[in-house]
């Protein structure tokens, strides 16, 4: 048991005891080093003979023009989708001022694989991939049919107001000249789909391989709700199929997992609206533009805000790779 040690987790230990009683303990702590915008700690909550594996996420990126929801809204979003039976880790409690841990929350730990290479390429998941394709369609249809009124608190964030303008403002904030992004923004502006007759739907906002956890029977949880917003349903479909998220298998548009048809059939069959590759293409271009902006943001924090690390440094140079895919897509040479 780790209680007796000065292990740097006294704040977490105190936060747990405030909610579960003085005899509650934490054990088996681990700090995964992957992840860009949160400090994540996985631990056992021990109450007498009972143990429960939990995950703590504390916000580490607090910045103007952040593309991420504050943890309070992430927690509220997870509570709402959990109530509807969506496979999301159960939200357990949110940190408050008395915890002195900044913004963050604790949720249930879910077993499963998120490593993209394993899901996309490994023999272990070969038999699961067809099932994943169908589940991706069904899960997105389920999310897009949730009552938007339950997510009214997201309307205040720029991505819910105008997804394109939100990205443009971030580009201006980071202050780097990126003509490829300006070209894409111009294309997106000139090819904007007509306003939908229906109200904006709830979007996960980052539904892609890497944020979807799977096991031998398929999806076990959908993670990372920090980009959720209201918008056009095809935005989620475009993001999942954006070329950068195909992990080296560009011929398989649905996340490098498989072809369009089983996914689109499942989406429609589960109540999703009409979707076809041509109408999704607009949101793939948007996705490449947005992914470039997110990488610029990570490099900006590395160079200007002291949030140092090789992954963040690499993000800055990786913008050239994403812009290549963007320009080749705009040139009609990539689909």
């Amino acid at each position: 048991m780790s209680d007796a040690r000065a292990d740097g987790f006294d704040d977490l230990r105190a936060a747990v005891r405030r909610r579960f009683g003085a005899s509650a303990a934490i054990d088996k702590l681990s700090v995964p080093s992957l992840g860009g915008s949160n400090r994540t700690v996985v631990f056992d909550l021990v109450e007498g003979a009972a143990r429960r594996r939990l995950v703590s996420r504390q916000e580490t990126l607090v910045t103007d023009h952040s593309p991420f929801l504050p943890p309070a809204d992430q927690f509220r979003t997870m509570q709402a989708v959990y109530r509807h039976g969506f496979p999301v880790p159960e939200p357990v409690f949110e940190y408050d001022a008395a915890d002195g841990m900044g913004a963050g929350f604790v949720s249930a730990f879910v077993e499963g694989e998120t490593f993209p290479k394993a899901l996309v390429e490994s023999e272990q998941f070969a038999a699961v991939r067809p099932r994943l394709l169908v589940q991706f369609g069904e899960l997105l249809a389920q999310l897009h049919s949730l009552p938007p009124a339950e997510f009214g608190f997201l309307r205040q964030w720029p991505d819910s107001v105008d997804a394109l303008q939100a990205q443009r403002r971030r580009i201006d904030h980071y202050g780097e000249p990126h003509p490829a992004l300006e070209l894409a923004l111009r294309w997106l502006e000139r090819h904007r789909p007509p306003p939908a007759p229906a109200p904006a739907v709830f979007l996960h906002g980052d539904f892609r391989i890497g944020n979807i956890m799977a096991g031998p029977r398929g999806v076990t949880a959908v993670l990372d709700w920090e980009c959720s917003h209201l918008g056009a349903p095809l935005e989620d479909l475009g993001w999942l199929s954006t070329r950068s998220w195909r992990f080296g298998r560009p011929q398989l548009p649905v996340g490098g997992i498989g072809p369009w048809q089983p996914f689109l059939d499942a989406y429609r069959g589960a109540g999703g609206g009409h979707a076809d590759p041509e109408s999704i293409r607009y949101w793939q271009v948007f996705g490449l533009m947005r992914w470039t902006v997110l990488n610029i943001m990570q490099a900006f924090e590395h160079v200007h805000r002291g949030r140092r690390g090789p992954v963040f440094a690499a993000c800055g140079r990786n913008t050239a790779l994403i812009e290549y895919e963007l320009l080749m897509t705009l040139a009609g040479r990539y689909d």
Binding site: P179, A180, L183, A320, E323, Y324, L327, M328, L330, A331
Partner: peptide
């Protein structure tokens, strides 16, 4: 413009 940006990017 697209061609110039692509050459630059490559």
């Amino acid at each position: 413009v697209l061609q110039v940006l692509l050459e630059d990017n490559v």
